[in-house]
């Protein structure tokens, strides 16, 4: 992936905006931003972002490639869509944030131990095993993401909910051992493989 990053730097050397337009989902909207700031002010988690969306858009135009792609900010988006609803220019800001995060991931530029990225990976790996999400395993893994002691604490806190789900048959403890798969696991896996091939091909063409 580091190679792809290098290839992209070569290709778009002086124009990060063009790179974003060509490679980031909904990236062609970035130039429409008029820097009013409504998105940033409307973001419920905005104060935790190093660079609010409006600033990211300006940084893209200013060619601050490294700062943008290795930023933690777009990973903070929780898809509440407040910004999209209010943007006077109707920019699909939420989608652009996810597009930037996805592109940074492809290039291998995600900051280390970024929790949203880590969870996304966890979710994906879990899903790939059986073609469906094993919620019990995913949940436990999430609890223990920040260490053993923390995991026990979180698990105890959610004990009641867990028991309730067990009782009403919404969660089976048996899922902890293997867990059940989708009907056609082979078919699922070859479908994902094909999709990955297509995606790689697309990236190869763009990245060349």
């Amino acid at each position: 992936m580091g190679d792809l990053n290098q290839a992209m730097i070569e290709k778009y050397r002086t124009n990060f905006l063009k790179e974003v337009e060509a490679n980031v989902e909904e990236g062609e909207w970035v130039k429409m931003c008029m820097q009013c700031g409504v998105c940033s002010g409307s973001c419920p988690l905005g104060k935790f972002w190093d660079h609010p969306p409006q600033e990211l858009f300006m940084m893209i135009r200013a060619g601050k490639r490294d700062e943008v792609l290795s930023s933690d900010s777009m990973w903070m988006c929780t898809s509440c869509y407040n910004c999209v609803v209010r943007c006077p220019r109707e920019l699909p800001i939420t989608h652009i944030m996810h597009g930037l995060a996805h592109y940074a991931k492809r290039l291998g530029l995600v900051p280390e131990s970024q929790p949203t990225a880590a969870f996304a990976q966890m979710f994906w790996d879990n899903l790939m095993q059986k073609g469906r999400v094993n919620e019990l395993k995913l949940g436990l893994k999430l609890y223990f993401m920040n260490g053993f002691g923390d995991g026990i604490k979180v698990a105890l806190k959610h004990q009641k909910i867990g028991m309730g789900m067990l009782k009403t048959g919404r969660m089976s403890p048996m899922e902890a051992f293997g867990g059940h798969a989708v009907k056609d696991l082979k078919g699922f896996q070859s479908m994902i493989k094909k999709a990955q091939e297509l995606e790689d091909q697309r990236i190869a063409e763009h990245g060349a």
Binding site: Q35, C36, G37, V38, C39, S40, G41, S42, G46, P52, Q54, R86, P88
Partner: peptide
């Protein structure tokens, strides 16, 4: 800055929220 929202504090004063450019 185009303010994002206005809320009222407990005394009925409008409080303007946003992020400047």
């Amino acid at each position: 800055s185009k303010p994002a929202s206005i809320v009222a504090d407990k005394d009925g004063n409008p409080v303007v929220h946003g992020v400047d450019t």
